[in-house]
Amino acid sequence: MHEGSGPSLEQPTWLRFLFAYKLLPGWMPEMVAVTWLVIAILCIGAIIASRTLKLRNPSRFQAFLEFVVVSLDNFVRNIVGAESRTLTPIIGTVFIFILSLSLVGLVPGLTSPTANPNTTVALALMAFLLVQYYAISRQGFVNYIKHFLGEPLWLAPLMLPLHIIGELARPLSLSIRLFGNIFGEETVIAVFVLIVMIVLKGFPLPLQFPMMLFAIFGGFIQALVFSMLVCIYIAVALEGHEEHH
């Protein structure tokens, strides 16, 4: 499937020409090109949409965007409360970005960047940094360290590694959950396509179609789970201060 060494998880895409003509470096997986295609579409879409916003008589597209923003805001507000003003853009972007990256794989000839651990680990690491930033800025650095040391101070040698592992387990679970789910869906779809090609000898029966519908659902759920967990981690970080006093 791939000219590189060893077994590959990657499926070929329409964007292979970018690498063939050396427009992008060879170490880059093709899904990076897909990611940036999605980024370009999202950014251009947002910029175009922001130019036609109206206070009265919003267009259908604006009404849809308002619905999305209000829903995301309510979602974030329900978990983190008053902090939603600054968090909604971040969590909302996480949700829309992950959802777009998962759904783009359903377009024939493209692949889901979220089915690649590079993408999910990058996202999870940034979520991790965001949570740590909120924890330190809201609790203060001293309380933040105290929280890691645990309540009876003489247990700190035991509690410190536990807390650190606990913190690190979060981005790990976030990234592997997202990667595993989307990669699994992609692979099942690919397998169904292969079954059609090999077992049915190209008979035009879209076996993969139900699985693609499920992948839409799964992509939505995984984006929701990822953003909800980040929200909850931040909410816990915000309340951590009060919990210990």
Binding site: I39, C43, A46, P89, G92, T93, N118, T119, L123, M126
Partner: peptide, 20 residues
């Protein structure tokens, strides 16, 4: 690759924050 993807996300974050 991590860095490239992270930069991509941050770009979307900035654009979405200020344009959406």
């Amino acid at each position: 690759v991590l860095l490239v993807q992270a930069i991509g996300f941050l770009l979307v974050l900035l654009v979405f924050k200020f344009f959406l």
